[in-house]
Amino acid sequence: MTALSVGPEEAREALKQALAMGCDEAILVSDPAFESADSLVVSQTLAKAIAKLGEVDIVFFGRQAVDSDTGVTYAQVARRLGWPSLALVAAIQELDPAAGSIVVERMLDSGRQVVRSRLPAVVSVVKEINEPRYPSFMGIRKASRAEIPVWSAADIEMAEVPQPVLAWPEVFAPPKVERECEFIEGDTPEEIAAKLADRLIEEKVI
């Protein structure tokens, strides 16, 4: 099991955590050329790095990044690799690497699809998939000593990193909504509830 990340030096900390939790090795893909990368570039970078790793059965992704909230990278990596994309997986029912097959439950708005797919595949998971384990003492010791190799753009045969197609010229704080909370008070819960219900109806909320 290999932990892989594209990012600046700081991403090393996340990879160390992955090692402490039980990953066998970690690789950081980092290059100044990736600094303004959009999802097209990141997905290409990851796909090239995965190809360089060689024999891979499954690539797991989280649902979305906590900063950019994009949530499309797994699908883009799957597309670039030409592997099936299994998105928002809540459970793995069967896994048979020898037969090259996997059965997963993927979350949809109205329920769950049970999907059988061939391997290799790209899987993005939702939190129901499991409880993350705690790093073990041995794991933390191992992680602190581990050498994490850094692959540059050239190392993964991206001689030219494409320019991003998306531009985000403006980043700004959402307009402050001056919302004064109207506290509903009363002597009994019934009185408070009645006042609240009346206010909601007066304001045409319901």
Binding site: S39, L40, D69, T70, G71, V72, A75, A87, L88, V165
Partner: peptide
Amino acid sequence: TSGRSRELAGMVAVDLETGVTPD
């Protein structure tokens, strides 16, 4: 925006080498 369409949007953007703005 739905789980499905995010996935679809990402894939189509790769095929067309274009940008995707989610949500």
